[in-house]
Design a protein around this nucleic acid. Structure first.
Lengths: 213, 213
DNA sequence: TGCTTATTTTTCCATTTGATCAAAAATTAT
DNA sequence: ATAATTTTTGATCAAATGGAAAAATAAGCA
């Protein structure tokens, strides 16, 4: 009836070894997929990074694609979290500052996940497209309404909510995705630079470039 | 002494066929490399997209890597152009509005180039690292000084020039790199949306989110 | 303990991939 | 037209790749 192998994580309870190994694999896969994309990543390479043989890896995940999907599913959840936390009732300035802080923190602590996500989107989102069109879309529409309400109440300047959301995503994510470029430009000073990112970004987006009277 | 094959574009004058074919190859390679990255792209695939056989493609470009470098070199030039055009003497607001307009236009007209560039950086910039550390670095330092002068003169609010430059890059480039995501979220309305991008972005970054008195 | 299941390794295979080369075809120059 | 050159192709190779099967080993549990 159902799968007899250890991969059948749905039906049977997961073994201790299973939990450990799947974790090791997912972590290694994240790294490799983020750097080389789906096609460019080699199962052998992932297995080596996870400290096991290729057949053994394929014992835990049926196929390269199944593994890719598993890694991506996880990543998406993390990626969505900060946006879900934006509250309609809160003070706009505080909410946005917090959102930026959360996103920048995510870009720092989960830079690899961020890059994997970017990689998937650049490749046309073959796997994530469906989720983007349904779940993310609803979530975004929800937050668009929040922003529209803020605008209507005169709490923030009249901005197109979608452009605002995309700018927030872009500017915060940049610190993870273009890390290599930032390091090439700033050299050793990059680490300190990152610390000032969320304040600098918040100030720029909230107060704008033109001097305030 | 020197290469006798058609690839020796340095020594001999380029044939008509050579010019045409190299152009076709570079275009096809751009597309494929941008979608699959260096490792993920197959020479065969590029050759097919260029309408020729694989050995024939390799007759024009010695190796996959040589082709990748050629494509990347071109792309970098295009990518740098808008930044070089920022003038120190100009009015800051106008200069930044123009820069945003140029970058957004580039993201629209050369979305594939933009994605290739992003792909290379995400993968750690193995080929571009050197250029980033030298030429781009000098260029950025130059523009940093321009921005610092604007701040010192009180023409714009006190911002960290690096953060400003990165935010400009990120927010404009996002429209190309995350095109798949934007389309998933906006559906058919995406096309119109893009038209409003540079004004929306300029207003947001110049005036900020908080209402002005 | 023995029996069952879970895990790992060894071996193998069919494709795909980047690359080469000699010969054929097409183009250009004389 | 004929010779010289450039372009294209077909055959082929060695390495890498995703995956399957089977055999060997280790856990878990009655």
């Amino acid at each position: 009836m159902s799968d007899r192998t250890a991969r059948a994580t749905k039906t049977r309870k997961r073994t201790r070894i299973q939990v450990v190994n799947e974790e090791k694999i997912l972590e290694a896969a994240l790294e490799v997929f983020a750097r080389y994309g789906f096609k460019g990543a080699a199962v052998d390479q992932i297995a080596a990074a996870a400290g096991m043989s290729k057949p053994n890896l394929l014992y835990y995940f049926r196929s390269k694609k199944a593994l890719y999907i598993a890694v991506l599913r996880r990543t998406l959840e993390m990626w969505l979290q900060p946006l879900e936390d934006i509250a309609a009732e809160g003070d706009p300035e505080a909410e946005i500052r917090d959102y930026i802080a959360r996103k920048v923190a995510f870009s720092r602590s989960h830079a690899v996940e961020s890059r994997l996500f970017a990689m998937e989107i650049i490749q046309g989102a073959p796997i994530l497209k469906e989720v983007l069109e349904t779940r993310l879309r609803e979530l975004v529409e929800d937050k668009v309404r929040v922003i529209e309400a803020w605008v209507a109440a005169g709490k923030i300047a009249p901005v197109d909510p979608h452009h605002l959301i995309f700018t927030l995503w872009a500017s915060t994510q940049h610190y993870a995705d273009f890390d290599a470029q930032i390091r090439a430009l700033l050299g050793a000073g990059a680490e300190d630079f990152y610390l000032s990112a969320d304040d600098a970004l918040s100030d720029l987006l909230l107060k704008g470039l033109l001097p305030r009277p």
